[in-house]
């Protein structure tokens, strides 16, 4: 009976495991829309023409100040509070430069009737909570209440861009800070030196062993050193690829975040 039922049992067990996996994933994993550009219009609130115009202005802002402002409209907040969703989205996308966390998200969730300006760590002194709240209350919510999403979004993002450019000296300093940051070498030089030393020892050992004609010695010492060198190389390449992963800024043509982080600055509103 057990033999008869065993495959069925196993299948049932596998199905149960799968079911548990599927049941548990919605709780654990939060999905975010793809970062398709500087304007991610998931909810379809913007005309293509004004979306393109806005994208150009956002790109000009980054070229000028180094700050990344991304406009997002969302179909659903997946039952999260917009404050909760916003900083996670910002961190997931890595909006803003990793050097100074200069990212801003303008999030509009028309179905939940919520709007939020999420400000990265580095811009909190410039885009204060009070300023963000003021922009939402005066520039965005009145338009949103009339269903004029496009004009509200454009007015809101224009106010944010104006504030980021307000002090040209400060904005230029921010841009310079990002530009001055030298591209970190992908290859860790410290590990490289050790690897070179180990290879040197191996080489010396090999030369000495072969000149002495001692097969036994070469057979005993070298493998240890070769193994150590291999281990070092392994470590070096692993850490090297990891650090290059955080520096690499997406594909050639598309837009991607610079690795900035968020800590809950900004303000929200509802209508």
């Amino acid at each position: 009976m057990i033999q008869l039922g065993a495959p069925a049992l196993r299948q049932a067990f596998a199905a149960l495991l799968l079911a548990i996996c599927f049941l548990s994933t919605p709780v654990a994993a939060q999905t975010f829309p793809e970062l398709s550009g500087r304007v991610v219009d998931q909810a379809g609130l913007l005309e293509p023409a004004s979306e393109a115009a806005l994208t150009d202005r956002l790109a000009a802002l980054e070229a000028e100040t180094g700050d990344q402002l991304v406009v997002v409209t969302l179909d659903t907040l997946q039952d999260y509070e917009i404050e909760d969703y916003g900083y996670r989205l910002g961190r997931a996308w890595g909006i803003g430069q990793s050097e100074n966390n200069s990212g801003v998200l303008l999030i509009v969730a028309p179905n939940e009737r919520k709007v939020r300006i999420e400000v990265g760590y580095g811009l909190e002194p410039i885009l204060t909570d009070a300023f963000a709240s003021h922009v939402i209350q005066t520039q965005m919510l009145p338009a949103f209440r009339d269903g004029e999403f496009q004009s509200g979004i454009v007015a809101g993002s224009d106010s944010i861009m104006a504030q980021l450019r307000l002090d040209p000296v400060e904005a230029a300093a921010r841009a310079a800070e990002v530009a001055a940051q030298p591209a970190r070498p992908d290859f860790p030089f410290g590990a490289g030196i050790i690897v070179a030393l180990v290879f040197g020892f191996v080489l010396i050992g090999l030369i000495r062993a072969s000149s002495a004609g001692g097969k036994r010695r070469r057979g005993r010492v070298s493998p240890v050193l070769v193994w150590a060198a291999a281990d070092m190389l392994n470590h070096a390449t692993r850490s090297g690829s990891r650090s290059s992963g955080s520096i690499f800024r997406g594909g050639g043509s598309g837009f991607s975040g610079g690795g900035g982080s968020f800590g809950g600055g900004g303000a929200s509103g509802g209508w």
């Binding site: 404050e83 900083y87 204060t128 909570d129 009070a130 963000a132 709240s133 003021h134 800590g263 809950g264 600055g265 900004g266 303000a267 929200s268």
Partner: peptide, 12 residues
């Protein structure tokens, strides 16, 4: 607005 932002930062 500042207090709300601060409460949010505390939560995060």
């Amino acid at each position: 607005a500042q207090l709300e932002g601060t409460e949010n930062r505390i939560a995060i």
